[in-house]
Design a protein around this nucleic acid. Sequence first.
DNA 1: TGACCATACCTCGAAGCCGAGGTATAGCAA
DNA 2: TTGCTATACCTCGGCTTCGAGGTATGGTCA
Lengths: 177, 177
Amino acid sequence: MLKLAILGFLHDRPLHGYELRRHLAALTGHVRPISDGTLYPAIKRLETDGLLVRSTEPGAAAAPRHTLRLTDAGRATLLDRLRTPDDLDVSDENRWFTVLAFLRHLDGEPAAQAAVLRRRLAFLDEPASFFYDGDRPVGAEEATDPFRRGILLIARATTAAERDWLHTTLAELDHSA
Amino acid sequence: MLKLAILGFLHDRPLHGYELRRHLAALTGHVRPISDGTLYPAIKRLETDGLLVRSTEPGAAAAPRHTLRLTDAGRATLLDRLRTPDDLDVSDENRWFTVLAFLRHLDGEPAAQAAVLRRRLAFLDEPASFFYDGDRPVGAEEATDPFRRGILLIARATTAAERDWLHTTLAELDHSA
DNA sequence: TGACCATACCTCGAAGCCGAGGTATAGCAA
DNA sequence: TTGCTATACCTCGGCTTCGAGGTATGGTCA
């Protein structure tokens, strides 16, 4: 997820680590902050994998900066990951939002974008609850525990809003394809 | 999060590992499945920490089962964690739902339950967006990218539903306190 | 001149998670 | 009797993450 986000941000334009940090903080920071000890090793991994290159420049306001630039391999990896996200990217909301944040990078391929959205739709259409009475899913109405009731109500509202948005966006994409 | 979920399920009644696995699959499995290689070491950690004990029994249909039972320390740890969840438990939706799933275990303490809900409310009231134009947060209406627009729309719907539920539930808790 | 802060990057050990693989037992069907 | 499936548990290496700590530069302000 971090890898995807880094590649996604760098696709727009080269950034140095500190800027990247701030972009990441804006995207997912209020939910799940990224520490330096996570970010910098991740950058190094991407570099050794040949997905990005760094060029040192004198720092504007402080220490020298390492400007990070996506390579062709990096760009290809990003687009590939966006075209075929794995199941966790589709089911976990945090990861899914990261995919959505960069899905526009597939801008020449509305059919590929639509295919990704359809995978999410399929996931949302799977009958799945959080709680079961034996094998039977427990609906929000019958939950006696107010907190579990909350989970079900919130999940239902989210799913409804997302289905709505998915359907309208898919219609637009299909139209432009 | 896994630790919290295990303690939470065992608070209801003793379970063996395989049952626990199925409970966990129902709670978070459709979003984020838990593998054996995660579950069993986690159980072992809880055991060495003295939070649960296991008693081997002949298996009903197969290999012998290890029935897991919460100790007093385990029960205390669970309640403590529910009373004072850390920030990530409050901000990350996956973790927050896990807290909610077991918050009823604080049933004698409506004030403590309300305090936890209020922390979530405070988090939701923080002005936070996913995208910024400089320092200014970008609203769903101005987002030109349809996918980022989706993120903002879905997040807005979720937040609205959750605020609603939090307010009504807090009113009930305050009434019963 | 010195204190302090924001910028900018990095390392290290501890811990957790994952997937792949392994070991058994019991029941059922070909 | 062979094989399959479900039950039930476990280990291992590899990878990622985290937090705590460290280094260095340049600017502001007293």
